[in-house]
Amino acid sequence: MNKDLNIYVLIKQVPDTRSKAGVNADGTIDRAKAGKMLNPFDAFAMQAAIDAKAMGGPNSKITAVTMGPPPAIAILYQALEHGIDKACILSDRKLAASDTLATAYALSMTLEYVQAKDGPADLVFCGLQTTDGDTAQVGPEICERMDLTQITYCEGFEIRDNLVHARKVIEGGAMEVEADLPALITIANSYNRLEHKTFRGAKFVQEVKRNEAIQKQFVEIIDLADCKAEDSRCGLPGSPTIVSATWKIGTVGGSCKMHQGKSVEELVGEVVNINQETIKEFAKA
């Protein structure tokens, strides 16, 4: 029998890959205009947290933590719908333009804040990376700050006798590792897909949205001062990464054209026509 596990899962709201995001003059994404979604990698991390809770003792619990502007609370509601017990968001204007170093600092301070209230972590789960940053650095950086055992690229795990037995994806295969708790695990997208939200969770979130008292109890909104983070180590001042310039490197995909949604006959006709045109062009050249 494993002990009760205190589990944290770090999640992030990212621009929706299915929506069209605007591009600012400086080449950065206009995040305000883009649709929003839960970082797809974090959905695997959330499932890992749910699975870990089931392996722990009967009083195991999961807290979802995020950092972002106030609308990012939507992904915390999503987490609660999936049966995650509590949630916390760090939201502060001073966090704008944070790089991985500043983000990891701010999130580790947030984790310290929630741990002080809800107890020390046994497990922290992160998605492998985000779809907007793609660095895969924040998880490991937090791990180093918090001095936890680190397991990255995990695609399956078990907790036996209060030890984590994990399978990591490595080039050309998989590696089995065993680690002590507490540990931070980044979850690969070959892990189990996030299950459908629970009815009880969906019901609860609607109560939370209606009732401020319940909301305060389950979704905590904090700023840098609350978690005692130093302003100078956050946001632009705390980010040594310098983006000197961005430029358009050309149209991705070149001349690739998708032919879809028509009858097979028509599609074949279209492709044949293209080929004939290409042949003619080659002949001319």
Partner: peptide, 13 residues
Amino acid sequence: TQDKIEQNTNKKQ
């Protein structure tokens, strides 16, 4: 409110 809070945290649903 208290009931709801207990409902969500208690194991016995």
